[in-house]
Amino acid sequence: MTTSETSPHRFLPPEGSYAPAILLAWPHADTDWMPILDRVDRCYRDITEALTSLEIPVLIVHPDADEIRRSLPSTVAKSVMPFNFMTNDTWTRDYGQITVKDNDNWIACDFKFNGWGLKFAADRDNLVTSALHNAGIIGGGYEN
């Protein structure tokens, strides 16, 4: 059964269309970025500053996201929502929710990333979307 058969009004908005926030999984010591963590951290700070300067809210996922937020300049931190959670990796396009629209309702679709054919661990990453939903951060509908 195809999605159009179950809901003919459901569609995936194009990349670049409205999003209420940007999801960033911040690098930490238990990711592949460990050898250059200081440089990558600086890059993520620059990305976060650029997004918030455009008034785009940023949702940061990190084992100590509260500390990351506290370390940002106040003008940046006010547009950052921290979510304390352990991840395997930072590439949220591999495991973050895919949000579709069904009539006037937004639905966060959770899926399971296989770590490129089990080449890389993704067990923590695969819990991010459901944890955000269970915490009430991802609103609207939810499909697993």
Rank of each mutant, 00 (worst) to 15 (best):
L59S: 04
A25S: 14
V76M: 06
F113V: 05
F111D: 06
P8Y: 05
W26P: 08
T2G: 09
G139M: 06
R93A: 12
L59G: 03
C109P: 00
R10E: 12
L23K: 03
L127N: 03
F113T: 04
N105K: 12
L51Y: 07
P13N: 02
T92S: 15
N105H: 10
P8W: 05
S74E: 15
D30L: 09
T48D: 04
R45A: 10
R69H: 08
I107N: 05
I56C: 11
N84I: 03
V61T: 06
T6L: 13
H62N: 13
Q97C: 13
L12K: 11
R10P: 02
P20Y: 01
F11P: 10
V61L: 07
S4I: 05
R45D: 14
F120Y: 14
L23S: 02
A131W: 02
R10H: 07
N84D: 13
P8N: 13
G136S: 07
D66I: 03
A29T: 15
P82L: 01
P20D: 11
L132M: 11
L132D: 06
F11L: 12
F111G: 04
I36L: 10
D125M: 02
M1H: 14
M1Q: 15
N103T: 08
F11C: 10
D94G: 03
H133A: 14
T90D: 07
G140C: 09
A29R: 15
G117W: 04
Y44S: 08
P27M: 02
G117Q: 10
F120H: 13
E67S: 13
I56D: 03
S53V: 00
G96S: 08
I68Y: 01
E143K: 03
R93K: 10
Y44R: 03
P8G: 12
V76K: 02
Y142L: 12
T129G: 07
I138Q: 03
T92N: 08
C43V: 15
L37T: 08
R42D: 14
N114H: 07
C109F: 00
A77I: 07
E15Q: 09
T3I: 10
M86Q: 10
T90I: 11
H9M: 08
A122C: 13
L132G: 06
N105R: 11
K119D: 15
K112R: 12
A135M: 07
M1S: 15
V76D: 06
W91N: 10
S4F: 04
M81F: 09
M1D: 15
N126P: 04
E67P: 01
A131I: 05
I60H: 02
F83H: 12
L72M: 11
D102H: 08
D64L: 01
A131V: 06
G141M: 05
